[in-house]
Structures are given as C-alpha cells and as structure tokens.
Simulated assay, not measured.
Amino acid sequence: MFLKWQIVLGIFLIAACGSPSNEANQESNKPPQDTAPSLLKEDTKNILFFGNSLTAGYGLENQELAFPGIIQHWIDSLELPYRVINGGLSGETSAAGRERIDWLLQEKIDVFVLELGANDGLRGIPTEETSKNLQEIIDKVKAQYPDCKMVLTGMMVPPSMGGAYGKAFTAIFPALAKNNNMAFVPFLLADIAGETDLNQQDGIHPTEEGHQIMAEHVWEVLEPLL
C-alpha cells in the first residue's frame, strides 16, 4: 500500500500541479472567483486561497466544488462574516506566484491561505529558492496587511526526486510556518493520493469527494482563526 501511495503521488503531482493543458489555461487565466453570495455585509472579511491546480479545482465543473468553495459553504452555514476568493492557477510555481500575488493584494485580505511549491519540487528547483520565493510571498502579504491571519499547506515530492531532495523539500513548509507564525496543514493530499474513489476518471485529479477531504484538512486549522 505504501508503494502504491508513492507511485500514485508522483503521477498525481505531475498531472495535477504540472503545466496546464489549453483547456486548463483558458479556465485558470480567468480572474479569481469569489465563491460567496453576491450580497455581502459591510463588515465581511476576505479569505484569499492562493495556489495551483489543487486550489483552482482542476477538472471540476466549477470552482465552487473545489475545496475553497466547500469551505465557503461551511462559513455560510455558520453565518461567519467571511468571503472566500479562489486565487488558484494551474501550473503555478513559487516564482510565478511571487510575481502574481501583487495583483491579488489590491483587494484587502484578512486571511491568507498559501498552497504553492509542488511544481518547484517536480522540476527539481533548489529548495532554498523555493523557500525564498514562498517567504517573499508571505512578506508581501504581511507588508500590505500586517494583521492578516495566515495558513500554509504542506506538500511532498515523489520518491523519484531522490531521498535527500525529498526530505529537504518536505522540510520547507513546517519551517516557514514556524518562522512566520502561520497555521499549518502538514500534507494537503493526505488520505486522497492513491485512493481510486477519491480521484477523477484519469486517476490523478481529486473528485468532489477528494476536495471535501482537502477542505476538512484545511478547515481544521482555519476555523479557529475565524
């Protein structure tokens, strides 16, 4: 079972977080979508989910079915004054995210959920560079909105990237979370990778049920901040 998980995780990451197809490009290049109702109270706060295809909901009918959209539904059911903004972009790297974040920060952000880095790992980008890029993203958010609450999601790379690299890559995320006092999700794809019923027909992208589990992982650390 462990070997199966390792193999499928590698395939999953390559397809779900790698370079997007033309169809994915067309969808991902659209402006970030709000998943909250159109009628908002004046005191409503914004939660920005910033990441790659996992955040964007690659392969789903619409972004409301992705884990940020599921979290919006839970927020609404609890009548909490928060609006989710889905800032996911398929194929995003930490370097690209560092450049893109400025545009998204034009709107006030009260809670920031960062889900990036997997593409760096698959390309063998030095972990020091990935860590630096992610830190710069975090610094930009802090500089713009000092009171913003922050969440970081962890990721892994397949064993084919090498044991030493994999260990160094995995260590990026808890270190950043600790150094920046961020709430931390250890592994976003826990309980999903390798599970046929939780992936789409291609066997590599999470189904709605898979996104439900991702939402649960994030909600566990996000809810106490709201």
Results as ranks from 00 to 15, higher is better:
M1E: 01
G194S: 05
E23K: 13
L105R: 09
Q144P: 04
I71E: 03
K4I: 01
L198W: 12
S21E: 03
L116G: 02
S53V: 05
G59T: 15
K149Y: 14
F184T: 00
G10P: 03
E216V: 00
E220L: 04
Q33I: 06
F67G: 00
P68G: 02
A190H: 14
T127W: 14
H211W: 07
P158G: 12
S28Q: 12
I125F: 11
T196Q: 13
D120W: 15
D139V: 00
L105D: 02
E61T: 15
A215E: 02
P37N: 10
S53H: 12
W5Q: 02
Q106P: 03
M156K: 15
V185M: 10
I109K: 13
D120E: 06
E64T: 15
D120H: 13
A36V: 07
K45H: 12
R100K: 08
E209D: 07
A16I: 00
L176A: 06
E129M: 08
V84M: 12
L152K: 11
N52G: 08
A215H: 01
C17F: 05
N180C: 11
N25P: 05
I109Q: 10
A143T: 03
L189G: 01
A171C: 09
D110I: 04
L116R: 05
W5G: 00
V221D: 00
G166W: 06
Y165I: 01
K178P: 07
N25G: 04
G117L: 04
P68Y: 03
G97F: 07
